[in-house]
């Protein structure tokens, strides 16, 4: 188990409001990690910083064996380096079919000319099947994804994330809007994915986090409040204060 992602001393200020305050987190590979925290704790901003959407005022974000500095890279470069992200709200391309959505996400050269001229379909069809079976959308492959239900869109987005084959998965509230069975399926999927890669799950639902059965990081006011197993952190007095109020 080696360190894949190292976030150290990162701070971000929005109009005087400190969203992230001297945050330091390390994620190993493979590892499953849950990040919890009350609203405004900086969970989403934390993901924004790793994926390049937000540039921090100070601090370092280092990725991989070669210790690549993510802060100097664009969103697409970061994604190509092996970091996949699932948004809080499902964002799939609704005007396109499920297959098109998955094909777009498949790990392949990303340049316009590669995409234009390399049209070999045979190899990737197999992979598309594999993924669609995993997310239970094989039947719907040729449907427009705008016609899917909310839960199915969540699945499709997870499928796209898997298709990218990233080393680090950032998953923002994956279980929102799912039925209990679907949640279970999601948990399985994430646990399985975490056997070979790093998975960071941001979640509100304690039950869901408990089922993940992994190390938990509690964020509060932009920095780490506690870290450890779920049982350990729920016993922490600070965490109880933050969640239940004084």
């Amino acid at each position: 188990m080696s360190t894949l992602l190292e976030v150290s001393g990162v701070s971000v200020t929005f109009d005087g409001f400190r969203a992230i305050n001297n945050l330091s987190i390390q994620i190993a590979e493979p590892e499953l990690r849950a990040v919890i925290g009350p609203n405004g704790a900086g969970k989403t901003t934390f993901m924004d910083i790793i994926t390049g959407k937000t540039k921090p005022d100070e601090g370092r974000v280092i990725f991989g064996e070669k210790s690549v500095n993510l802060l100097g890279m664009s969103e697409s470069q970061i994604a190509q380096a092996g970091i996949g992200r699932k948004f809080q709200k499902p964002t799939v391309f609704e005007a396109q079919t499920v297959r098109e959505n998955i094909v777009m996400a498949l790990k392949n050269p990303r340049g316009p000319f590669d995409v234009l001229f390399k049209r070999r379909a045979d190899a990737r069809e197999e992979r598309v099947r594999e993924i669609s079976d995993e997310i239970g959308l094989t039947e719907a492959l040729d449907q427009t994804s705008g016609a899917l239900s909310h839960g199915q869109k969540q699945w499709l987005e997870i499928g796209m994330l898997l298709a990218q084959d990233p080393r680090l998965l950032l998953v923002d509230e994956p279980a929102a809007g799912m039925t209990p069975q679907e949640r279970e399926h999601t948990t399985d999927l994430l646990v399985r994915a975490a056997r070979t890669r790093a998975v960071v799950v941001v979640e509100h639902d304690m039950e869901f986090v408990r089922r993940l059965n992994c190390k938990v990081t509690v964020l509060h006011e932009g920095s780490v409040l506690a870290e450890g197993s779920l049982d350990h952190v729920t016993k922490n007095k600070d965490v109880v204060d933050v969640y239940l109020g004084r």
Binding site: T51, E75, S76, A79, R85, F93, E94, R110, M160, Q164
Partner: peptide, 13 residues
């Protein structure tokens, strides 16, 4: 339809 999402898929938009 969603430029930012394409970027996070690793395409240089």
């Amino acid at each position: 339809d969603n430029e930012a999402r394409v970027r996070f898929l690793g395409y240089h938009v």
